[in-house]
Design a protein around this nucleic acid. Structure first.
Lengths: 226, 226
DNA sequence: CGCGAACTTGAGGCGTGTCAACCCCTGTGG
DNA sequence: CCACAGGGGTTGACACGCCTCAAGTTCGCG
C-alpha cells in the first residue's frame, strides 16, 4: 500500500496522478511545537501523517477551548479556508509529521480528479458532523457522559488504526481533556476515579485500561450512574 | 441584481452559466414543517432563500441540541455529505423557501467554474469556523456571556442583510435559545430580564430592543456583570 | 372570546467550579 | 545511584451558578 496523505478511496492510476503533485512537502513538528497560530495567513491544509495534535480557539481574555484532537489521516486547518486566516492554534502533543497540502493545488487537482474532489468534500463534511456531536456533548451532557463519550470516541479512532481495543495511552493532560469537554481538570480526574471505582476501567496516569466498554457505552445510552 | 441561491462573488457570465443548471428546484417549507430528518438519505444541499430554520442533533433518549439557526443565504445539510445521510433534523421556524442544490450537480459545475468551487469550500469552511466559536461558548462561557454572544451574533447577521441595527424579532422560543446555548429556558428568561434591568435592552416577548450594544459586547470582553 | 402554549419569577437543591493540600511520577544533576 | 525539583494528578471542603420544580401571568391563535 502506497503511502498517501489524504486517505481516499482512489484507484491506483488516480493516486499516481496525484501524489507528488499534491503533497508539496512534509514537515516535522516536535512535541509542544506550534504548527500554526490563530490569525496566521492560511495557504495550506495539513494532513496528520504521524503523531497527535490539538487545535483550540481562545477569547481575548485568554480562555481556551480545545476544538479537537487530530491523529493520523485527519486534516487540520479546514476552518481557515473562508477567511484565508487560521482561526485556531494547532499544537503537536507528541513528535509528529504532517503533509503540507496547498489549497490551490488541492482545488486544481480536484477539478481533474473528481474522486479527489468528492473525498475532500467528505472530509470537510465529516468535520462538521463531528463538531455537531461535540456540541451535543458540551450543551446537554453531564460530566460523566462527556468523559465516557470522549474515551469511547478515542478508542474507536484508535481501533480503526489498528491499535488495542481496550488500552488507551492518553496524549493529553487532564487539563486538556477538560478544556475539550468544557470541564475543570479536577472534574475529569474525579470522573476517571469514579469510573475506576465502578470497575469500568483502570487508571494509571495516562494509561487507561478499559475493562468494561459496554458499561461506558451504557452511560451514554441513559443508564444512571451508580 | 439577478436572484441566485448561492451568494457567490461570481461574474455575470459565470452566473448565466450556472443558475438554472444548479438550482434544480425551489421548495416551500411552512412554519413548523420539517425539511429533512436525521437518517434521511442525503442527495441535495439546501440554501435558505427566505425564512428561518433550526437544525439539531438528538440522543437516543430524546435530548436535543440545536446546532444552528440558518437565515437567507446560508446552507443547510453540509454535515450529511460524508455519510450520505443527514445527521441533523432541519425545521422551519417561519414560512420559508429553500433552493434545492443536488450535490452531484454542484460538484460537476464546480469543476467547470473554479470560482463556484472555491465559494463552496469557503461556505463549508465558514460553518466549521462558526461551529468552533459555538464550542467556545458552550465550553467556557457563563450564561450571561452566552446569551450576549447569541444576541450579538444574531444582530450582526441581520444587519448584514439590511435589517435594523438594534431591533431584533426573535423567531425562536426561549426553549430553543436554551437548547442552542446549553441552558434551560428559565435561565435564558432570567438572563434577558437581568439585561433589561441593567439597561442593556428592552424585552417585549420575542421583540428585543437592544439599547446598549456596546454594553453587551463588553460582557464578552471580560467586564463583570453588574 | 377562551384555551393552551410560552414566558416570567421564586424557592430550593445539586453538580460542578474553586481553592487548597498532598502525592506521585519523571527527569536531571550531583 | 540518589536527592531534589517541578509539573501533573488526586482528593477534600466549600461555594455558587445553574437546574429543577412550581405557581402565576401574558400572549397568540383557533
Amino acid at each position: 500500500m502506497r503511502e498517501i496523505c489524504l486517505p481516499m478511496g482512489l484507484t491506483r492510476e488516480e493516486l499516481e496522478h496525484i501524489d507528488h503533485r499534491l503533497v508539496a512537502s512534509r514537515r516535522k513538528v516536535a512535541r509542544g511545537e506550534t504548527l500554526f497560530r490563530t490569525g496566521d495567513r492560511f495557504e495550506s491544509l495539513f494532513a496528520v501523517w504521524t503523531g497527535f495534535f490539538k487545535t483550540f480557539v481562545s477569547t481575548k481574555q485568554g480562555r481556551e477551548q480545545i476544538t479537537g484532537f487530530q491523529m493520523a489521516g485527519e486534516l487540520i486547518g479546514l476552518g481557515g479556508i473562508d477567511s484565508r486566516r487560521h482561526e485556531v492554534d494547532a499544537i503537536a502533543l507528541e513528535d509528529s509529521q504532517v503533509c503540507v497540502i496547498p489549497l490551490a493545488e488541492l482545488e486544481a487537482l480536484g477539478r481533474e480528479v473528481p474522486a479527489l474532489q468528492t473525498q475532500f468534500h467528505k472530509m470537510m463534511s465529516r468535520e462538521i458532523a463531528t463538531d455537531h456531536q461535540i456540541m451535543l456533548q458540551l450543551g446537554s451532557m453531564h460530566a460523566e457522559e462527556r468523559v465516557a463519550a470522549f474515551l469511547l470516541n478515542l478508542m474507536h479512532r484508535l481501533q480503526a488504526r489498528g491499535f488495542s481495543a481496550s488500552s488507551v495511552l492518553l496524549r493529553t493532560s487532564r487539563e486538556e481533556i477538560g478544556s475539550f469537554l468544557g470541564l475543570q481538570l479536577e472534574t475529569v480526574s474525579r470522573t476517571l476515579s469514579k469510573f475506576q471505582a465502578n470497575g469500568l476501567l483502570v487508571v494509571r496516569q495516562r494509561q487507561i485500561e478499559v475493562t468494561d466498554q459496554v458499561g461506558l457505552q451504557r452511560l451514554l445510552d441513559g443508564a444512571p450512574a451508580s
